[in-house]
Structures are given as C-alpha cells and as structure tokens.
Design a protein around this nucleic acid. Sequence first.
DNA 1: CCCGACCATCTTCCATACAAGATGGACGAT
DNA 2: ATCGTCCATCTTGTATGGAAGATGGTCGGG
Lengths: 238, 238
Amino acid sequence: MAAEVLQPVDEAVSDTIASRIVAALRDEIVTLKLKPGDAISESDIAARYGISRQPAREAFIRLAQQGLLLIRPKRATVVKKISADGVRQSRFIRESIEVEIVRRVAAAGGPETGRALETIIADQEEAMRADDSNGFHVLDEFFHRTLARLAGVEYAWQLIDDHKIQLDRVRYLTLGVASQQRAIAEHKVIAAAVAAGDVTGAEAAMRAHLARAEVLLGQTIADHPDYFEAEDGETEPA
Amino acid sequence: MAAEVLQPVDEAVSDTIASRIVAALRDEIVTLKLKPGDAISESDIAARYGISRQPAREAFIRLAQQGLLLIRPKRATVVKKISADGVRQSRFIRESIEVEIVRRVAAAGGPETGRALETIIADQEEAMRADDSNGFHVLDEFFHRTLARLAGVEYAWQLIDDHKIQLDRVRYLTLGVASQQRAIAEHKVIAAAVAAGDVTGAEAAMRAHLARAEVLLGQTIADHPDYFEAEDGETEPA
DNA sequence: CCCGACCATCTTCCATACAAGATGGACGAT
DNA sequence: ATCGTCCATCTTGTATGGAAGATGGTCGGG
C-alpha cells in the first residue's frame, strides 16, 4: 500500500527506457553530480547509458519542461543554473498551497489526524538518531504529503513536488543535523496546532517552518555563486 | 526589459514544428474540437499536419505531462477526460496562490497599482460591449497575471496558467454574457480593495471571485457527463 | 600586433525504418 | 448457436541517417 502511494508520479506508469533516463538524470541533477551550467548532449547521454539518441532526447524534453534543463535549439543543452528568484517563487508557491492545506486540515481535523502526523514525526526522530539522512528527507516529504492527503488535495502535492526540485538542489547543499532537529521541532508545533483545530496557529507554524529556506538561500548563494544565475547585473562578468 | 520578462516562457523559445503542434493541439483540446475521450495517434496527427511522426510524438509527451493526454504504452493515446476532482484541486491550487498574491499586492500596493488594474477592467468592459468573447478572456487572464507581476511572482502565474487548462475546458462549456458582467463586477471589488490596502477584504473578494467556478462545475457535469471521468463508482458501467 | 572571414565540428531537429505488444474481428470447433 | 483461438492491423517505443544552424579556432589581410 505504501508502494501504491509512492509509485504514481503521473507518467512513469510505463517502464520505458526514456523514463529510466529521466529518473537517472533527475537524480544526478538534484544530487549535483551534474552541476548547474554543465553541458550535456543527446549523444553524450546515449553513449553513457548505452542507448539510442531518441530516448535521451525524450528525457531532455521532459526535464526541460520541469525546469531542470535548458535546451538551446541548435547549440547545446545545459543543466539550468539555479535561479535565486526562481527558488523564491517556488517557495512562494509552496507556502501558498501548504498554508491553505494546514488551514483546511486544522479546521476539519480530528484526533486521528494528529496521531497520524505524530507517527511520522516519531519515525523521523528515529531516522535522525540512525543518522539516516536520506530516510529523514523521505519522511519529511511524507509528512507534508500526508497533510495534503488529509486535506483531500494529494494531487496538489504532486505539483509542489515537481517544483520542489528547485528547492531540493539548494537543500542538498546545506545538510546538517541541527537543521533536522529544528525541522522536527517545527513539525511538532504544526501537528499540535492541527490536532487542536487551531487554524491561525497552524498557519503561522507552517509559515515559520517554510520561512527557514529563505535564510539558507542567502547562505548558499554566498557559498556557491557559480551554481546560481546572475540576478540583475550582467550575465557573464567577463 | 519588459520583453525580458515576457519572453522566457520556459521552453517555447524555440520555434520548432513540435512547439507549433503543441500549441495547435492544446487549442483544439481546450476548445473541445478534440473531445475528452477521443483517441488520437501519432501517425494521425502527423498526417493531419503534414509532418513526421517525431514532432507529433514530442508534442504528445509535452501534453501528457500537462495532463491533457493519456499515453497508453502500446495501446493508444486519448484526450484525458476531465476529472471533477482534478478540477477542484486545480481550483484549490489557483485559489491558494492567488489569495496569497492579492494579500501581498494589497499590503504593498500604492495608488498606481489600483490604476493599472482599473485600466484592464475598462478594457474588459469594452470587449464585453463589443461582444468579443475571446478578447474578454484574454483580458481576464491578463488581469490575474498583472496581479502576479505586481506581487513579483510572475513565474507563479505561469504555473497557474499550466493548470488552468483543466478549468478552461469547463469554462469553455459555460460561456455567457451574464458571467462576464459578474466577473467585471468582482474584478472591481478586488481592485478597489487592493488600491485601499485592505488585505483581508482583497482576500475575501478573490476567494469569492474564484468560488464561482465551483457552481459551474456541478452544472457542467450534469450537462456533459460523458466528458468527465467516473468519480467513485465503476469506470465502465457495462 | 590586431581584426575579420572561413571552415571543421558539434549540436538539436526532423524523417524514416523496424520491433514489440495490444486489440478486435473473423473463423472454426464443440 | 456459442465460445475459444488465431491473425491482420493498429498502436507506441526505439534505432539510425541526414539536414540546418551555431560555435570556436584557424588563417589571411590590414
């Protein structure tokens, strides 16, 4: 059943080569094995994965539509640099929707919703203790996704998930245990407010939780300026 | 500079055949020349537009990712039926984001923002008098998009635009002058609240404005049940 | 020494050919 | 007459070849 919930990502129902390439490239991009600005070509990927150019091309199209690649017609295809403004707007989108979600859940929620959330938080604490950074992230995502399902808008979460990749690349640059502890604490506040039916409290808690990304962004830009697009000045400071 | 803001629509920078097919099919789907449930094939489209299968295939991929087509691996490709639940969730997404947008604009807005909106409304009234239904819709979209730009999140509007197609198909089934008059009146209320810096008032006005779609949905399902997916019961009541 | 034109090379884009699987109707057995 | 099987036909997925265009280095002229 858990697998049922995790599988349907909208299009990956078919197990084609192109789909696998999409997943593979997507992972390489988020984990920064493919760095922003790197140039790749269809032939390149085709050779690397031992396939034809056609599936590689289709993968490029899908990833370009997700905002991860930039296909330049007759020139080359590059891994899109992270746009600071784009990250802020992705965060804006996420905050808009998630705030609305917790409002709904808090308004309609009963005691069992609170219990469902607490279970996830407990799992997160265990993952943190086990130093399972990857599992922690999966559970973090599951927490938010569960809220969406409780609000009856799980499809909306899928949307957030698509655009969250932009945020994930930043997040990947700023891992840390302290961050995990704080995330858990904030999740607890949200869960408590939701369980108590405190709409405005839940909204505030969610906003505070998501606001943390703003701080990380500035820090990350300072640390890895070459991964980001030039914002206002010239694009190429020659 | 303004061109800079309007140009980057993410992928349509290149003027390829595939892009034109995407636009053409998208239009046909929204205007219901291609009805939900209709089956189309790559060869079919290729022949119809006098092109090869390859661009048609790419267009299918892009449209499938936008949720308009359903590609069934070795079977056929069909125009996705309208999902009532999907429409509700698209509306939820739109409301979440647009509410947040008007909040921001109302909070930070000055007198010139109100004037910009009023200009658009005036144009809308003219379009209505001229019985230019298409122009009216374009201006309606422009009104909301302008709000997004004033909030500094025009990219977010693009997201809404992508998912608004689901709503547009329903809207296309329910045109009418009365609807236009009401839309203009509601736009005026929103613009007034924004100009006055009335955050909660603007939020309420926007919610009311978008809530109208809910009523239309039920009506439309009743009128065209064959365009919609079966919701809970069996998919095929044989 | 500096600048402009040319060209080999690379890229994406499109066309075509083939492969694998699913469908629906015809056909034959019971 | 009814049911099961087979097969022509359609579908999408993949491979490969050629075309148009952009790039960057090289070469020649000033």
